[in-house]
Design a protein around this nucleic acid. Structure first.
Lengths: 183, 183
DNA sequence: GCGCGATTAGTCAAGTATGACTAGTCAAAT
DNA sequence: ATTTGACTAGTCATACTTGACTAATCGCGC
């Protein structure tokens, strides 16, 4: 939740914006940095305003519904810096989504497990390729860094997965069928 | 949430257990696979029982408070397999906790950013070292795989971070001071 | 034979997050 | 003029998650 607050404050620090705008940018450009959803962003903005980190001013354009344009306050700037220092200085033990499945790999026949892992590998490759296609220019240093970070992790993941598949496949060739061992 | 359900079902599939026992094992041995907390586990167990994936039977030992021992049902077994296939076959775009901070790296003076990144690197190294110390034997194939997975990702992270620090440091040496660029 | 910290087993209130929905506006094709 | 599909802007009920707590037992030193 602190990461999310940091993200919103950081974006408002760069430019005052209304909720919809913030959310659009996050959905379209920052899907790899956060998976925060719209209602969460609105809720956080409300809380930040209550706490004095940001202020809002109503703005109307044409006959459209009025919208709240948020701006960061000096207090919010201080909060931003605190959160930023916290975030940069630490590396929370990270939990890889998807590893729970890996734990029970041997609950499936080897053949099927291999097929599924190959499918996963394809997805990872797609993601890695998509990332490599993102143009490096035209984004701040920070965003470029997160993309780079993602990319190297994905490539490491890809290498490991494809190695794992090979190991399992050759093991399967050695042994006979591919029945679950049953724990 | 599906990952968490999968984990609980998988554990119950191996052995019927009560909530406390499940949680102990998770906290002590699976902190790297999931960060699920105790009340969440209890809540999920309740839901799974309501849905018929597991059943419970009260058990009393001595004068201790009675506890619910959960066992997986055939329906739960089917759910387990479905979730397992889903989990193994896909690679959800993963979001790296901590990258939000990276995005705003240039909000800090270069010197400070570097100091923080070095601190982060130290943490990553610690984690990697701790993982490498985990004995490879004495745990099922699955658990060993998740540890291995974690380890290679941590090492990739470490390499990237230390490269980044070097790049930033040399860039700082070239340019003069280290003031925020402000944007 | 009793106080005390550790362990066992679990619950609860409060905070967080989100899928689904509302309610309008705009562009442009019919 | 009017239907239609996409966009703008946000809200709400519900579900999920967890920090902090309860309440009992056990072991162990005194």
């Amino acid at each position: 939740m602190d990461e999310r607050t940091l993200l919103l404050l950081g974006m408002l620090r760069i430019e005052s914006q209304h909720g919809y705008q913030l959310n659009e940018f996050i959905e379209h450009n920052l899907a790899r940095v956060t998976d925060m959803k719209k209602p969460t962003a609105y809720a956080l903005l409300e809380r930040l305003e209550r706490e004095g980190a940001i202020t809002s001013r109503l703005e109307q354009e044409g006959a459209r519904p009025p919208r709240k344009v948020y701006a960061i306050t000096p207090q919010g700037e201080r909060l931003f810096l605190t959160l930023l220092r916290e975030s940069l200085g630490s590396a929370s033990v990270y939990v890889i989504a998807g590893d729970a499945g890996m734990m029970f790999l041997d609950a499936l026949p080897l053949d099927e497990a291999l097929a599924l892992l190959r499918q996963r590998l394809a997805t990872v490759r797609e993601q890695a390729a998509a990332l490599d296609r993102v143009p490096a220019h035209k984004m701040g240093l920070g965003v470029a860094l997160t993309i780079e970070h993602q990319a190297i992790l994905l490539h490491a993941d890809e290498a490991w997965l494809s190695g794992l598949i090979e190991r399992l496949a050759s093991q399967g060739a050695t042994a006979g069928a591919g029945q679950p061992t049953g724990a």
